[in-house]
């Protein structure tokens, strides 16, 4: 990553206390945030798949179509 653009990570400027950190620390933090968001998204998608297994068979198709259009 070259010069960090916080709007890519947060959708807005970073707080003042973050923006003055050394650039390598800012990059480490931004990476952590991006990885966390990605990891949580993956967990969510995996959980939805697993949840379908607990949905009564009769409703499973309908629920699947809503969850994964």
């Amino acid at each position: 990553m070259n010069r960090l653009d916080w709007t890519d990570v947060l959708g807005e400027e970073a707080p003042a206390g973050i923006a003055v950190l050394d650039s390598d620390l800012q990059i480490a933090l931004a990476t952590l945030l991006a990885e966390s968001q990605q990891r949580q998204r993956s967990q969510l998608e995996a959980a939805l798949e697993a949840a379908l297994g607990h949905v009564p068979r009769v409703l499973r198709g309908a629920v699947r179509r809503v969850l994964f259009p």
Partner: peptide, 17 residues
């Protein structure tokens, strides 16, 4: 980093997620 900036970062991260 000051606590207020960390708090603001958390609120931004929650919003972003």
């Amino acid at each position: 980093v000051d606590a207020a900036s960390i708090r603001q970062l958390r609120l931004q991260a929650v919003k972003r997620i």
